[in-house]
Design a protein around this nucleic acid. Structure first.
Lengths: 216, 216
DNA sequence: ACCTGAACACCGTTCAAGT
DNA sequence: ACCTGAACACCGTTCAAGT
């Protein structure tokens, strides 16, 4: 849908190029020099269209989150809708792991506000008081950002393109090898870690919070 | 308890000095040059005691989290204990806002493992299945890290030493001024935001998750 | 064994100069 | 109005040289 070879720079082209670089080389790979080279221009030119790197990253996260939220199918039941919203954000972060770090670096930027608003509206439709709506939305968003950020950090730590199951196996082995005195719980959970699924575990956390909201 | 003028460097002295600088000047203030100057040595000397900046930050977070967890008073009732653990971590992050960012940059470092383990042991003492223990611990830790990170980011954004209530008032005014079509929920919540308390709101989120766990 | 500090290979950002 | 690219003021890290 984007024009193939529009002449000159633009915020849009910069955002698109930044996403390409971030996906290819991770957050460390996105420098204004690399971005300028990618766009066949000088580094200084970028500053004509964007105030700086923070603003660019905010624009990038705004775009991906907006797309993720647009993709959410409507649900008549609020808790279903919340689950769908959370799942869609999770999938965006899963597809672009660096997004987790970017999102939680500047909360209360438009991207996070969108998530908060969308979740909040669904809570509003539930039969709960305003205080629980506020606490519930805050808790859900904090949880979503927390998981996103952990995923981003894990991807940074792991070798790129490593197989998911071999990564989990290595991680579980680490847990199992922990000191028995200091980490009895983690040791006991190591087998469970090895066979857990990130996405459904994330959604199980959402369900836990939703169940807590229902209990009010 | 630390020796006043022990000769030479050491990991411990570096960690202590790093915390001082971070508290005074924020995360951006901690450079190896500044740290070396603070310790009256050359920048290269630091690398004799620490592999690099990441390791230093990990050691810093490890220390503060260990102190926070030691300060937790024992509770016979698991959900009380979990509340106390979460509150103690919250207070550490509140006292050292940059810690929130450091903690969630490298999860599954010792600091995070300690929190996970401590919370997990309490869940283990509750009458719940192992799957809920795993999901519950993950959810609680992700939430704690999420909130910590948001707080860190908020402090970065606000002017330093700004009064808490004036910050909240300004933030609430921003919410109230949002577009009515796009942000009805946030607008409706603006008054509540203005008078909410960070700490008790954080704990209300913990209670929500705990209530969800109980509902199993 | 431990420290020094200059040097290396980067950054984000600015800005005079161009078109 | 928009782009260029050298220059500025930084970084983390390395490493020969010192004690």
């Amino acid at each position: 849908m984007a024009k193939k070879s529009a002449p000159g720079l633009s915020r849009e082209r910069m955002v698109a190029a930044a996403i390409e670089i971030l996906d290819a080389d991770g957050e460390g790979g996105l420098t204004f020099r690399a971005l300028a080279a990618h766009l066949a221009t000088g580094a200084g030119a970028l500053y004509w269209h964007v105030a700086g790197k923070d603003e660019l990253l905010a624009a990038v996260s705004e775009r991906l989150v907006a797309e993720a939220l647009e993709a959410v199918t409507a649900h008549a039941v609020p808790r279903r809708a919340i689950r769908a919203i959370a799942a869609s954000v999770f999938e965006a972060v899963d597809a672009h792991p660096w997004l987790g770090a970017v999102l939680s670096r500047g909360p209360w930027q438009v991207a996070t506000m969108q998530i908060f608003e969308r979740i909040g509206r669904q809570l509003q439709a539930m039969q709960i008081g305003e205080a629980v709506q506020f606490t519930g939305a805050s808790t859900l968003v904090s949880y979503v950002l927390g998981v996103s950020n952990e995923n981003a950090a894990n991807r940074r730590r792991a070798e790129p393109n490593i197989d998911r199951s071999t990564f989990l196996a290595a991680e579980a082995a680490r847990w199992k090898a922990l000191d028995a005195e200091a980490y009895p719980f983690m040791r006991r959970m190591s087998a469970r870690l090895a066979r857990h699924d990130d996405r459904s575990e994330f959604l199980a956390g959402i369900d836990l919070i939703l169940a807590g909201i229902d209990a009010r």
